[in-house]
Nucleic acid binder design. Structure first.
Length: 871
DNA sequence: GCAAGGTC
């Protein structure tokens, strides 16, 4: 038997399809797909299935001096045990193996990992095939003429692994230990994340150091007698052969203003008309795709996860690629023809086929890894995709269409006129032929009207304006711009750049979008610059790339390169050791600055955002235990102080980060005082204790800024119902018959119609029902199609799934085994239980606490009632 | 529990 090994399951299936002419069968072994036909087996890995790490005796951060990691041995360990087992089981049965991992450096290393796993259990010949796109021609040709594994290229990848681990782990542990940050909040540095962070920090430094300068610009409207409408022209002057629009001197600006005001007409001195061609865009690689998706408002993470789904579903090609040139195999005409038959893209595709010759554009980067991202020609039924998925699918299709389209042509018209000794100019722009814009509507095609004037013509001058302006600091880079810059600098890879940004968010190094560095990030970069400059310098990657090339070409060995790197790192540690305390203090200062709100009203020390042992956040005094002053904070999300400061209390406002429901809480002291000042509004009897103890339900404001309907006998009775955080609550005259409570309306500032919340009890019951109803589709191992099949069989909620008879489901739903149903049921029960646990006040973990409409869950409400009545 | 790189 011959065993074929690919980098991922998807590739394994497609290669099997090609080599078996579609006749392959599929087996599951240890949860891994194995494709089978004739004397062949084909299995897909999941990227790296083994990883490099230190031996277990180095695991305890406190027991091991970080510097020891510099010379510590490294071992390879299976990280995906089921895949490794399957691979080795198959290898034992095989008499030959073929490695068909991706055609790039990391693919060669993954191939070598597979090679070693096979070699461990079987003495069989192992060959290597290389192809850059999974098409019939490339795959059959590659398999007809297999090659050998390139061990030097793989060694280059191994050097990267070792150097990254050694530097990253040793320095991360040193910084974390020196500042006492050992839990989840350790302080990390690395070859890719740290230069990326420095990029953000450096821009912030420029912004902070920026000193704005005043300047003036002048405009006037000009009107031609022969043409309709006035057009705007801007004042300029020539100096040393250059045109300048900005006037830096106020007196000069005023003088020009006077001159223009005195001008009754302007004489056209220059008319320059030219046509410009506007080339269609080049094919999408990962970075270009992310950047186009970002202009549609999708984050890098979101764009990539949607692209992965579209890829797994078979609608677009592999989304992680550096390539911007379609390989020879791609047949754009055939692909256009596929789309020409469809409703949505039919007309556009057909219009492109009318051209004599379809010649797609080519980008600058041509690589062997994968083709540029393009549609496969497999067409998704629109209703199968979510709105986001469809939007990004359409983007990929339209980008492909655009790369096959003609250039656009523009007419540019420049007019210069003289008015009372001043020069005015206007630049007009008109789209003559939309070209590719007709199929790719994502780029601006706005025109700027300047009429057809003639040289020597006299124009009327009106509405002369002098505008005072200031130079602006450089702009922060958004996520997609950062990813582009990372690519330009050569840091990270197509598969990791967006994850690196996410990592910076997760480590509390950056916040917001465009990302801004925290004070902690500033301190980390400063410490690194001072003692380990190499780790924040993109030059480390550049050097590593050169070294890897030398290893790959056989010029140097892996050992020589890692040894040199090791020596550099030990030198760094010599200096670091002497400054351990200074580094620790500096990092701690940064951490504290991120949590600081302002002066404590009780003792004048500093108020900080702190975390209780139970995990909830509150505002506490840095003078604790001498000062016990505290203020509550909302429990939904992570509190972050922002720049805005309360004028009354001199405290920074707090923003609650909670994904989509992020909001600004404001000054915590103001919020607490508001609750104390506001009277409770009684709306009816308490359903728990109204009869026995005359408890009443009231609308209350909590000191943490939330609102709820709760019993006036709290804490004797803790009955409560949640209310939305935002908007004014109105008590109406309509009563709920079932609960004898008034219906409530919520009036929101930005909306005309109030939200008719209804009776608070009914509303809460509906809300709970909705919370419990997680989609069946959200469980692991259930895709859209399976979820549909289940729904057809009447199973459309977690509760129904949990209660179903697995055997019955298996017999009713094709392709689903009873075991798989049992697995889903276990997950479903867990999900259902979790929903119920939300109300457990002792649950220190963060729970889902606000729904789409901005309501707190009962769990938080109870916590807040605690605070409200305790204070 | 550290990195960065694959993949889901």
């Amino acid at each position: 038997m011959e065993l074929i090994i690919t980098e991922k399951d998807n590739a394994a299936r497609r290669i099997s399809e090609i080599l078996s002419d579609g006749s392959f069968g599929t087996d599951r072994r240890n949860g891994v797909n194995v494709y089978r036909w004739g004397g062949k087996r084909c299995v897909g890995l999941s990227g790296h299935v083994v990883g490099v790490d230190f031996p277990p005796e180095y695991d305890d951060w406190r027991d091991v001096e970080p510097v020891e990691l510099v010379d510590a041995p490294m071992v390879k360990r299976a990280t995906k045990e089921n895949i490794v087992r399957t691979l080795q089981d198959l290898a034992r049965e095989a008499d030959a193996a073929v490695i068909a991992t991706d055609y790039d450096r990391e693919g060669e290393l993954i191939g070598k990992e597979a090679y070693e796993l096979v070699e461990e259990v079987a003495d069989v010949p192992i060959r290597r095939v290389r192809f850059s796109s999974i098409t019939e021609r490339e795959v059959t040709e590659a398999f007809a003429d297999p090659d050998e594994l390139d061990f030097d290229l793989a060694a280059a990848g191994e050097a990267r692994q070792m150097i990254d681990l050694m530097w990253g782990a040793a320095l991360t542990r040193f910084l974390s230990l020196s500042s006492g940050q050992l839990g989840n909040d350790f302080i990390s540095v690395g070859r890719v994340q740290s230069p990326t962070l420095k990029l953000i920090v450096d821009r912030e430094r420029e912004i902070e150091a920026f000193d704005p300068e005043d300047y003036w610009e002048l405009f006037a409207d000009l009107t031609s007698e022969d043409a309709d409408g006035a057009f705007e022209a801007q004042y300029f002057f020539r100096e040393e052969g250059r045109e300048n629009e900005r006037v830096w001197d106020e007196a000069a600006a005023n003088a020009a203003h006077e001159q223009l005001l005195a001008a009754s007409e302007a004489t056209v001195t220059e008319v320059d008309r030219r046509t410009r061609t506007d080339q269609p865009p080049t094919p999408f690689n990962t970075t270009q795709f992310i950047s186009a998706a970002s202009s549609l408002g999708h984050s890098a993470q979101k764009a990539m996860s949607v692209a992965e789904e579209l890829y797994t579903a078979g609608y677009i090609t592999y989304p992680r690629t550096d390539n911007t040139v379609y390989p020879e195999d791609t047949d754009p005409v055939a692909l256009l023809e596929t789309f020409a038959d469809t409703g949505t893209f039919g007309e556009d595709a057909a219009s492109l086929l009318e051209a004599d010759d379809v010649e797609p554009t080519r980008g600058e980067k041509e690589t062997t890894d994968h083709p540029p991202i393009h549609p496969t020609g497999e067409l998704p039924p629109r209703q199968d995709l979510s709105a986001d998925e469809w939007e990004l699918y359409e983007l990929v299709v339209r980008r492909f269409l655009a790369t096959c389209a003609e250039p656009a042509t523009w007419e540019h018209l420049r007019v210069v006129a003289a008015a009372n000794g001043c020069l005015l100019k206007a630049n007009g722009k008109r789209l003559l032929d939309p070209g590719y814009h007709a199929v790719y509507p994502y780029l601006s095609t706005s025109e700027n009207f300047v009429p057809d004037v003639t040289e020597g013509e006299s124009l009327a001058v009106s509405d002369v304006r002098l505008e005072a302006k200031q130079t602006q600091p450089p702009r922060r880079r958004g996520q997609s711009r950062l990813i582009e810059t990372m690519e330009d600098l050569g840091i990270g890879t197509k598969s990791t750049r967006h994850n690196t940004l996410q990592k910076l968010y997760d480590r509390n190094y950056i916040e917001g979008d465009p990302p801004r560095p925290t004070k902690l990030a500033m301190a980390v970069v400063e410490a690194a610059e001072q003692f380990a400059d190499r780790i924040v310098d993109e030059g480390m990657t550049a050097q590593l790339e050169r070294d890897m090339d030398r290893i790959a070409s056989g010029e140097v060995t892996l050992d020589e390169v890692t040894e040199e790197s090791r020596e550099m790192l030990s030198v760094i540690f010599e200096e670091l050791h002497e400054s351990r305390e200074a580094v620790g203090d500096h990092l701690r200062d940064g951490l504290k600055a991120d949590k600081t709100l302002g002066p404590c009203p009780e003792c004048g020390e500093t108020l900080l955002v702190r975390r209780s042992r139970r995990g909830s956040y509150f505002v506490g005094c840095d003078g604790y235990p001498d000062c016990e002053y505290t203020l509550p904070l909302p429990s939904n999300g992570e509190p972050t102080p922002i720049d805005e400061t309360c004028e009354e209390h001199d405290l920074r406002h707090v923003k609650m980060l909670a994904g989509r429901s992020t909001y600004v809480h404001g000054c915590p002291q103001c919020e607490a005082e508001k609750a104390e000042d506001e009277e409770d509004v009684v709306i009816g009897a308490c359903p728990d204790c109204g009869d026995d103890h005359e408890g009443a339900l009231a609308i209350k404001r909590t000191r943490a800024g939330g609102r709820l309907v709760g019993c006036t006998r709290y804490p004797e009775c803790d009955y409560s119902l949640p209310l939305p955080r935002r908007g004014d609550i109105e008590v109406t005259d309509t009563y709920c018959e079932e609960h004898d409570l008034p219906e409530l309306h919520v009036v929101q500032d930005d909306e005309d119609d109030p939200w008719e919340l209804g009776c608070p009890i009914c509303n809460f019951e509906e809300y709970q029902a909705r919370q419990r109803k997680t989609d069946v589709e959200d469980l692991d191992g259930i895709g859209k199609k399976t979820a549909e099949k289940l729904a057809d069989a009447g199973i459309d909620s977690l509760v129904k799934l949990a209660d179903a008879d697995p055997e019955a489901v298996a017999s009713e739903v094709q392709g689903v085994s009873a075991d798989r149903v049992r697995d889903w049921q276990a997950q479903a029960r867990e999900a259902i239980d979790e929903g119920g646990d939300d109300t457990d006040p002792d649950d220190g973990e963060e729970t889902v606490v606000e729904d789409d409409e901005g309501r707190d869950t009962l769990g938080d409400v109870e916590a807040e009632v605690d605070e409200a009545t305790a204070g």
